[in-house]
């Protein structure tokens, strides 16, 4: 039995179809990265799985329990860390954890012991007696995750755990999540950062406009979109169109090239790059195009996203929050 099973999940808000038939599974003791831009349906999926929303159609189970028919039993087995740190600024870190323990009907003694243990585990022992109002963003996030682990959940849901964190806190959060995973927590993680999914997730489900557009491991996804990437940087923006045209002819790869006007680069999938690079340099030179740089690299998840959706993972996503 999988830790999470989702079949044909649909959800509509007014005129907006937030989910249009999402299927996914999370194997026990693995991490699934649910990857997609803002408004793709990631948060809606998490909210249905954590019993906060009811789906219009489809079926979802957590630990074998149906989320719609038995929400309370599901709640006893999950931990949820929502998009923003849900911490009460007026309480201390210790009180926050103790209260959650008591809401899980632990005895007062057990709730306190658990709070102390989690504070230590999350490097918050010194701050535990202080009011959360004075905590940094990273500390709040750590406390938030600690709060979702009080009951030792079988499945942990992390909705964009590093959104809004500075780079250092983000790396710290990655280490923390990796440790939790190493201890065997089944985790469903949503993110709009491709590097985050690549680093933390065993399997990745790419979601856009409420439908799953790809799934697999990071390597499988990269394999799906063909070989290496050739990235050419030119001197002037008006040379980009001609460069793209020449590259397309020479590489003869299906799947469009990507033009980044700001960086003045054209990226295209290419095979046998060791032969292509000299050709490309010569071609562009003959055409009078000033070439600043030619790079061959392994495809990233960014490339996957571009190829699958036609737009970058961040940037030109839909307006509005992730509902």
């Amino acid at each position: 039995m999988n830790a999470v099973e989702v079949e044909g999940l649909e959800k509509r808000f007014g005129d907006t179809e937030a989910l249009r038939g999402v299927d996914l599974t999370v194997e026990k003791a693995t991490v699934l990265g649910l990857l997609g831009p803002n408004g793709a349906g990631k948060t809606t999926t998490v909210r249905i799985l954590t019993t906060l929303l009811k789906a219009d159609a489809g079926r979802a189970t957590v630990d074998g329990i149906d989320v719609a028919s038995d929400p309370r039993r599901v709640r006893a087995r999950i931990g949820l860390t929502g998009q923003y740190a849900a911490v009460d600024e007026r309480l201390t870190g210790f009180e926050s954890l103790e209260h959650v323990g008591r809401l899980f009907h632990l005895s007062t003694r057990e709730a306190r012991a658990r709070a102390t243990e989690l504070l230590e585990r999350f490097d918050l022992t010194d701050a535990g007696g202080r009011v959360v109002k004075g905590y940094s963003g990273g500390m709040r996030r750590r406390l938030d995750i600690a709060m979702s682990l009080v009951s030792r959940p079988t499945v942990l849901f992390l909705d964009e755990p590093t959104t809004g964190l500075d780079p250092r806190s983000r790396l710290g959060m990655w280490d923390l999540i990796e440790e939790l995973v190493a201890e065997g927590t089944t985790t469903l993680l949503t993110t709009q950062y491709l590097d985050e999914a690549e680093r933390l997730a065993d399997d990745i489900v790419v979601i856009d406009h409420g439908t799953v557009i790809a799934k697999g491991t990071a390597d499988e996804l990269k394999g799906q979109i063909g070989g290496d990437r050739l990235e050419v940087t030119v001197g002037r923006p008006d040379e980009l169109a001609r460069t793209a045209e020449l590259l397309r002819d020479r590489c003869a790869v299906t799947g469009a090239e990507h033009v980044d006007v700001e960086a003045r680069t054209v990226t295209i999938a290419a095979s046998e790059t060791h032969k292509i690079v000299p050709d490309v340099v010569r071609l562009l030179d003959d055409a009078g195009i000033e070439v600043l740089d030619v790079v061959v690299r392994r495809p990233t998840l960014d490339d996957v996203f571009l190829q699958l959706t036609g737009h970058a993972a961040d940037g030109d996503a839909d307006e509005g929050g992730d509902r």
Binding site: H105, L106, R114, E120, F122, D123, L149, E183, G184
Partner: peptide, 23 residues
């Protein structure tokens, strides 16, 4: 980050209470 304690050995054991007492 200390790695001393295993965070998730098994689900915590809640104290059994009636529905009303729980609420």
């Amino acid at each position: 980050m200390t790695t001393a304690t295993n965070v998730l050995p098994e689900p915590a054991t809640p104290v059994r209470r009636s529905k009303l007492a729980g609420a």
